[in-house]
Structures are given as structure tokens and as C-alpha cells.
Nucleic acid binder design. Sequence first.
RNA 1: GGCCCCGUAGCUCAGCCGGAUAGAGCAGCAGCCUUCUAAGCUGUUGGUCGCAGGUUCGAGUCCUGCCGGGGUCGCCA
Length: 604
Amino acid sequence: MTGHPIWYSRRAERRCRTPPMNIFQDFTDRINAVVRSIAGDDASGLDLGRAIVEPPRDPSHGDLASNAAMVLSKPLDLKPRDLATRIAVALARDPDVATAEVAGPGFVNVRLAPAYLHKALASVLAADVGYGRSDIGGGRGVNVEYVSANPTGPMHVGHCRGAVFGDALANLLAFAGYDVTREYYINDAGAQVDVLARSAYLRYQEALGEDIGTIPEGLYPGDYLIPVGEALAREHGPILLAMPESEWLPLVRDTAVAMMMAMIREDLSALAIEHEVFFSERSLTAGEPSAVAAVIAWLREKGYIYEGRLPPPKGQLPEDWEDREQTLFRATAFGDDVDRPLIKSDGSYTYFASDIAYHYEKYRRGFRTLIDVMGADHGGYIRRMQAAVEAISEGGAELDVKIVQLVRLFRDGEPVKMSKRSGEFVTLRDVVDEVGVDPIRFMMVFRKNDAPLDFDFRKVTEQSRENPVFYVQYAYARACSIFRQAEAELPDLDISPEALRAARLDRLLDPGETTLIRRLLEYPRAIEAAATAHEPHRVAFYVHDVASELHAHWNRGKELPQLRFINAGDSESTLARLALVHATKLVLSSGLAILGVSAPEEMR
RNA sequence: GGCCCCGUAGCUCAGCCGGAUAGAGCAGCAGCCUUCUAAGCUGUUGGUCGCAGGUUCGAGUCCUGCCGGGGUCGCCA
């Protein structure tokens, strides 16, 4: 099971100190200071926002690269290379800088002094499990709505990606300093839950000893409704049998939905996912006036709702198409292609109408950033929902809809067949039971959310380099093993966290070591970039890179024993290297915790 | 037909809200590793970034138009 990372709780959130060193931010500040001194009186009007410091693509260019000279030369009326030269000259005087050079059209390439890398590594150790945490969120609220599967049955694999993606994104945003609420919208109001109720009623009759024969077409045949029927029989006895449908349906429906939600929550907890808020769609249409009615009335006042006709859809016309006047939301006023209906022909609200009220509810609770995680088939829904959010918040809130693409299942390279009609779908629980949580969680975010993903049951449990889950976890396990080995080989060496923090880090000068240090120093930047873009997959790729760096250096020790982490003849070096390994462990476990993947002490 | 997403090496994909000679893994080729935990490591081959224009000092990245694949298209959720 995935353990709860230490930064998970709200209380830990509040105790968070100043974020640890972000070397890219550090040098952005230093370069900005240089530019301001060059600009003199002109400095006030200068837009420094576009000037950034980043790792160069080619490591031979140095440790840091800045585009400041190219971005700022025009307002300062200088040639890019001239400005770059003046920046480079000033930076070269900085004792933390080994070299600063001008390259290409006006890049400033900086090579850091080893002492600076060691100082930065020390700050990683000092930050401990807080390393990488950011305050770019500034404590602002973000609502992440994900999963929101219909409460009509167990979760199937199709829900899996959105669930894991949303959860990892929520973790990531929390780590980046946002006040995150994880939310599940229960679709308990549509026709589908009525079907659920009728299906459950049949099982109720069955539980009372009636022969129900085969489940009729159009009802849910799954065995998972049998316990619902039994529960209804226990709770109500035979009295529902005598009622007309209009009377028993609400009763049966509420029980069935509650039991389905309990089941879904169990499925989710098997994936280590826990929402803070479960919001009922039905609650939005309850009361007088209902939340939906209130929002529609408000929008009508603002002129965003009117009665009108819609042009028939292009292409294939639906069979039951009829031209009629209806209540429409003026989505076109906010960039949508067509205005959207709010009331069905039977007088009830459309899903969209309820969803507007729901998003208004989130806005009313204070959220200004809303994130919805949805499946690929909802792509056409994004514009209208964004339009609605803009309308109900009067431009004060932003909705980001993250679409997760399909997951194709394979076993040994062969596609796994699924048929909805026969009910032969693979449940989420099946997959968890077969491969475990870690491979699922890691693989689901080891791909950009908007690209399709292949998931092979066999490959994800393979213990090989080709399996990124294993590769990353093994790096962590290997780091742990180095510590176990150190204890065994050098029982007199103090390798406590305090001793590691006091280590002579200036002994870390091998290129393999400094490369690993640089990689670890990218962590805060990787977190901020991933959080800003709402892209947790970047964290997965980042920890994979860290793992790769550790494996690489470990292997060099096979050929060159003097590079091994443990060197019995040199306790000073050994301690410094163990400090580096410890920092690597910190970063790996932190990144994996964001993804919800465990960091095992050893592989079995 | 309208809209959305995708198109990057033989394969699977990254490319950090415009930056330098476009990267990684697999596969291929050439080596190394029998151990601080074996399941790895090093080097190497390989790309007109779907096509054509445009914006810019600079475009895989932004804009327009095509081509190809997927999704979607009032009263499903």
C-alpha cells in the first residue's frame, strides 16, 4: 500500500517554511539585479518577466543559460551580444560562478562553481522532506474534480486514468503551495440512476424469492446488484412490492446509489485515492428554488439566457430531431460555437444546466481555479463549460478541463478484448488485483494526458529496465541498499541524518556525482513547471531521469572502484557520497509520493 | 460538413507557456559488468519535427490553409 507522504496533511502544509533553494530562480534574481544596474534610470520600465534561466539543452554549454540579453536588449537600446557581454562580465565576478560566457545570438551560459553546487546540495539536505515544495500556489484554493463515474456499478479500467491523473495533479498542486480540494461529482440525477433503481428492484424481488428469469434488455445485469436487492429486502420487507413505481423508485434509487458509491469508494481506496468532497447532482435540483433554478434565473437577468431555436446539427441528423423553441444559454457570447440548451423537452434540466449550477457552487465556495478531469469523449463539452464558468463568475474564475485519452489494454502485446454488451468489462479492481497499485499509478501518468496510452499487464510487472515503474523504484531500493551495505561494512561510521548534513560535500567532484547533483537541483523547477502546466506526467519523467542518473553512476563504480559510494579507506568521501545518495532518496520518494507510487526499501 | 485532440528516429514517446547543432528508451550495431542487490552501464547508427505558407533576430513550439488518424456534433451523463 502506498504510505501517506509526510506533506500530505493540512497541518504539515501550514508548518512549511521558506521554500528551499531553487538555483534557477536564484540566478534569475542575480541576473535581473545585474540588468537593473546596467539599465540605471531606465530600470523601472523594464519587463523582466520574459527573461528566464534554464538548463541548457546541451550540457556542454554549462549549467545555466539565460536569454535575458536577447529579451531585454531592445528596450535598453543595446545589441543583444553587447548586453550579454556586460551581464557575463558581471556574473563572472560572482564567486559562485566558475565561468560566464556569451554564446550564439546572445545567450549567457553559466558554469557554476563546485562550491555553489555543494552549498545547494546542503540546502537540499537541510530542507529534508520539504525539498521541492513551492509556494507558487500562495495558498490559493484549487478545486480538482476527477473520477465522477456514474454510480451505477463498479469502476472499470476506463475510469482508471482520469482517477490517477486527477489524484496526482491534486498532490502536485498541494506540493506547489495550493490549497487543494479533491472532489467527486455524483451523477445521481439522470435517467441512468433510474435504470439502476429498476435493476435493483428486480434483485429485490429476487431476494424475496421471486423468479425474475433473465434480466431484461436495458437493465443492468451485473451480480453486484444482488446485495442491493438483499439489503432492500432486509430494510423494507415486502412492502415495496405493493407500491407503484413512482413510490418505490426514489427509495430504491437512494439505497442503490448509496451502495454503489460505497463500492466505488472502496475501488478508489484500492488505488489510494480519497476525495474530500462528494457532491450530489440531485441536490442541485432539490429545494425551492433549486440551485439550478436560481442560477438560471440569475443568468437570465444578466441576459445570457433566451428562448430560441437552434439550427439543426450538420451532418447526420438525429432521427427524432424536431425544430422547437427552447431555453438556451448564450454560450456563443463566450466563444462557443453554438448556444446550448438547458431544459429538455420533458421539462427537466439538461446535464449541462445542472453542471452550471454545480460550477457556480464551486465558485461560491471561493474557488477561482477549477479543474475538471474528463474522458476523451467529453472534448466537445469543454467550450460550453468554460463559457458557463466565465458567465457565472463574471470572468473571475478559470476552468481548466483536462482530457485524458483512452487506455488500450494488452497482455503480452495482444489486445485485451472487452465487450460492453456482454458485460465483459475489466473492472478496476481486477487490474489492481493483478498488477498492484504502483504499476497502474505510475504508468497512467507516464504519458501526456492527451495522448492515448498502451497498458500491458505483463510488461508493467516485469523486472527490467524497459519497465519504467521498476526502473525508478529500483533506483530508490538501490539507494537504500547502499545504506544497508554501509552499515554492514563500516559499522563505526556515523551515517545519521545529522552526520550526513555535516558531511564534507566538497569531496563530491566526480562528473558523475556533480551531474547527479545538478539533476537533483532541478527538482523545484520541475515541480513548479509541472504544477503551472497542470501536467503531473512531468514529475514521472523527472524521477525517471533521476533514477537513470543514479543507476549510471552506480555502474561506473563497477569499473572504477574508486567511484563507488562506499570506500572503506576514505570515510570522508564515503560520508559525502552517502549524503548525495540520501538527497537522491529524498527527491525520489518525494516525486513518487506525488504520483502516489510507493518507494520500496528493497525489491523482491 | 462544424468543432476539439493527435501527427517528432524503424517502434513507443519526451521536448519545460519561441531559443543554440531537436532528445530518451526499445530495436540494431560495438564493447563492458559475475557486483556497494543480478534484473544493468558505455559508445554508436538513425529524423526535410505530416505538407505548404506566414509572424519573428530566432518556430517542433505561435497564426492560416491543406493531408492523415481519433473523438464529438439539441432533449446521454
